[in-house]
Amino acid sequence: MKYNFYDLAKDTLNTVKQPLSINDIWAKSVELGFAAKISITGKTPWKTLGARIYTDIKQNSDTEFIQVSKRPAKFYLKDLFLTNSYTKENSKVELSSKPSFHERDLHILLSTFVLSNPHFNCYTKTIYHEKSKKNVKGSNKWLHPDLVGIYFPFEEFQNNTLKLLEVLKENPYKLFSFEVKVEIDFSNLREYYFQAVSNSSWAHEGYLVALSINDDPALIDEIRRLNNAFGIGIIKLDLLNIEQSEILFSAKTKEFLDWETIDRLTEENKDFKQFIDDLMEDIKLGKVKSTYDKTLNADEYALYIDAKGMSANLTIPVRGVANR
C-alpha cells in the first residue's frame, strides 16, 4: 500500500514518543525523512495532514490517533497514550520548527509581500520604538506599530485625475499599520491581537502578521470572532513563496483617520515623523522618490532566509519572489 499522511503521522509519533501539534508532526517528519516518502502536490502539506487527522478522529471510531490537548491542539497515538510511554525527558525534545530568528527579521519579508500584493501595493517603514521619547514608564505601551505602510495611486491614476480627486475631497491614498509576530497560538493570541488594536487605530487598515499560526480550529474561530468585533486583519507569511502569503482575515477599512494618534506618533517617534515627511514629499512630487524599507528579489530572498536560519523550517526549495 502506498505510504500516506496517516503512515507519516504514525511513524513520526512512534519515533518521537511525544504528543505534537500538527505543525510539529510535519516538521519532525521532515527531519526524520518520513515526509520524503509521500508525494506532495500542495504548497501546505501540513494543512492536509491536519485535515486527515482531524477527520479520522471525528469519523473513525477505530482511529489510532487521539487529541490530548486543545490549547494548543496536540495529538498522539492511542496505544502510546494509554501506556503513558512519554516522559518529562521526552517533553524536552527540540523540534526543528522552533525559530532561531527574531520578529524584526520578518519585517523585510512582510515589506516584500505587501509591495507586490494588489490589496496593499504599499511601501513600508519600520518603526523603532526605542527611538521614541523617554516618557513615564508605560505611557507609550502598545503605541507604536512595527511597520507602517502607504499606498500611492500614482500608477493607477493620471495626474489630472489625482488633482480632481483632491478637488472633490476624495482620498486615493491609504495608510496601513502592521504588528509582526513569529508565532500565534492560544497562549498569546489575545495579547498580540489587542496590541495590534491599540497601535493601529490611526491607520485606514491594521493587521496582525505572523509566520506561524496554529491551525487548531478553535483558535481560528476565536480569531474570526476578534476580527468581526475589532476589525484587525490577519496575515500569514509563507516562507516557501512570500508572494503567496495569505490574508486570512481582511481588516475593516476605516474611513476616517485617528489624527490625534498620528500627531502623537509624529511627536514621539523620529521614524514615524520621517515616514510622514517622506509620504508628504512624494505626494507633492506625484511619484515615489523617498527611501522606504528594502524589499527582496528572488536571489536576495533565498540568501536572506538562509542567513537568518529560516530555511531550516522549509520543506521544499524556496521559490521566493520574482526577479524585478
Rank of each mutant, 00 (worst) to 15 (best):
A203L: 00
H204T: 02
H204A: 04
G206F: 07
Y207T: 01
S212F: 13
I213Q: 08
A218D: 15
A218E: 15
L219T: 02
I220D: 03
D221G: 11
D221T: 13
L226Y: 06
L226R: 00
N228V: 01
N228E: 11
A229R: 14
I232Y: 04
I232F: 07
G233P: 03
I234S: 01
I234G: 03
I235G: 05
L237E: 08
L237Q: 07
L239P: 05
E246K: 12
E246H: 09
E246V: 09
I247G: 02
L248V: 12
F249E: 00
K252E: 10
K252W: 03
T253W: 03
T253Y: 05
E255R: 06
E255T: 09
F256Q: 15
L257W: 11
D258K: 01
D258R: 01
E260W: 12
T261E: 15
R264Q: 12
L265Q: 04
T266V: 03
K270P: 02
K273M: 13
K273W: 04
Q274Y: 01
F275I: 00
D278R: 04
L279T: 01
L279I: 13
E281Y: 13
E281M: 13
D282M: 11
I283Y: 02
L285M: 13
G286V: 05
G286I: 06
T291L: 13
T291P: 05
D293W: 14
T295R: 07
T295E: 04
N297R: 10
A298W: 04
A298D: 06
E300N: 07
E300F: 09
Y301A: 01
A307F: 09
K308H: 10
M310T: 02
S311R: 09
A312V: 09
A312G: 04
L314Q: 12
T315F: 15
I316L: 14
I316E: 14
